[in-house]
């Protein structure tokens, strides 16, 4: 690939991710509305929200680290997008691989922690400590799943993983080869996306949206953008590991949207667990399922 093409792809991949992510946010809110028997927001609602937040007159900054934290939160996911191969574009996927991706996906949480720390709001501190604890909880099954998938495919290169699955057809997809690992990954996706029942760190009614409590204007807008990237990233990663990736956008988009839709549908019918229960649950069931899946795979 020539450097010119690479630069175009590095620019296009986050842009596509943002646009698709906006669609996912819309889907998330529409699913919630339909489950609660409402109409839901209009089609362009996510983009209205973001433009409005960036257009506020008051932009309360709590200092340099606050701003850097938000840049890290968005930038971490932008970096993750360049490592995720999509139909027609592979970006840095050859150089990176799934282990790098797992590291890069932790940057947003850490950036958020930095930014919230500067705000010095007790609700924010409580929220971010819960968020990092939740990260500890969902990352264990997630890493186990990545390990198992890398063992089955014999590579950590995401482009190769897609190629292997597409050679073998739907029978060779990860979800058929290692159903237990796919199930464990689905459960930890719920945690990665921060949706109910693992949503205690946001908890609007108790700690006033936790990490976001002091975020206003463009900072909140940055977090809305981050949410778009987050939904897209988890959808694409799951599709790449277990659903054969994408050959064409026409087959790829339904896959990633349906992957993201499953945790959302679960989310709206659940209340939330306490932090210690989140850890207990995530370290018990997904880890148990993932370990069994590993045993099956390694046999």
């Amino acid at each position: 690939m020539s450097p010119g093409e690479l630069i175009i792809e590095l620019f296009l991949m986050p842009l596509v991710a943002f646009v698709v992510g906006l669609g996912m946010v819309l889907m998330y809110r529409r699913i919630g509305a339909r489950i609660q028997r409402r109409v839901g927001p209009p089609f362009f609602q996510p983009i209205y929200d973001i433009i409005k937040l960036y257009g506020k007159h008051t932009q309360i900054s709590h200092g340099l680290i606050h701003e850097i934290g938000i840049i890290m939160a968005v930038g971490g996911y932008v970096a993750a997008e360049t490592l995720l191969p999509v139909p027609g574009m592979s970006g840095l996927a050859d150089k990176g691989g799934v282990v790098t991706l797992a590291y890069v996906m932790m940057i947003p949480s850490l950036g958020l922690a930095l930014g919230v720390g500067q705000c010095a709001n007790p609700n924010g501190s409580i929220g971010i400590s819960r968020a990092l604890t939740a990260m500890l909880a969902y990352d264990i099954p997630f890493i186990l799943v990545i390990f198992g998938a890398a063992y089955v495919y014999g590579t950590t290169n995401l482009a190769d993983i897609i190629a292997i699955q597409q050679q073998q057809g739907p029978g060779g997809w990860g979800i058929v080869q290692m159903p237990l690992l796919a199930l464990a990954a689905l459960l930890s996706l719920q945690g990665i996306m921060g949706k109910q029942p693992f949503e205690i760190y946001i908890a609007p009614a108790e700690i006033a949206t936790g990490p976001m409590v002091e975020m206003s204007g463009k900072f909140m807008g940055g977090l809305f953008v981050m949410q778009c990237f987050q939904l897209y990233t988890v959808g694409v990663l799951y599709t790449t590991l277990f659903l054969g990736g994408g050959e064409y956008w026409l087959t790829f988009l339904p896959k990633i949207f349906s992957v993201v839709a499953i945790p959302m549908m679960i989310a709206f019918v659940f209340p939330r667990y306490r932090t210690e229960d989140v850890i207990r649950l995530l370290w018990k069931w997904p880890v148990l399922i993932a370990l069994t899946g590993l045993a099956v795979v390694l046999r």
Partner: peptide, 22 residues
């Protein structure tokens, strides 16, 4: 706000902190 009249179709949603509210 809820299913009968559904404010969200007008883009109105509740927020819990004054920093985020309009």
């Amino acid at each position: 706000m809820t299913s009968r009249f559904d404010m969200e179709r007008l883009g109105i949603q509740p927020m819990v902190t004054p920093r985020q509210a309009d």
